[in-house]
Amino acid sequence: MTESLPLNLPIDLTVNGERISATVPARQHLIDFLRETLSLTGSHIGCEHGVCGACSIRVNGAVVRGCLTLAVQCDGASVDTIEGLSDSGAIADLQSAFHERNALQCGFCTPGMLATGYDIVRRLPDADEARIRRELSGNICRCTGYHAIVDAIETVAAKRGAGA
């Protein structure tokens, strides 16, 4: 047998602006590290195989699947979860649009939807309904039928676009 890799590895990263040092199992996924170790339970687990988008998290400004990303990969990274995005006010407009438009029912997909939605309104302020629907194709919502989510994101994209 070849020499085995260490089972636990140290990482240093920034989570929601806070510096974190931890030793993590090499096989631990980012979503489990956030939820179990840091008790940041706002990001959810819907499938653990990269399909549903409930675990969508911002890592270094890009949306990733927390269930497909290893915690050790995030050594040195800056991670933003729904808790951080809420407290910083970065997505306050999206959150209130979701609330107003009832773009959530059970709320389980919502943190992931907001992470993707935030990405859409920043990248594609001119996105129309069809484009938003395409962009959302990595996030499953089982409750709403999507219509309200698309409306909410479209409203915010338009407002942000006009304000820019």
Binding site: T41, G42, S43, T81, I82, E83, S86, Q95, F98, H99, N102, L104, C106, G107, T110, P111, L114
Partner: peptide, 9 residues
């Protein structure tokens, strides 16, 4: 729904 949009359910 407010707590849910903050991931605080």
């Amino acid at each position: 729904a407010k707590k849910l949009v903050q991931g605080r359910g």
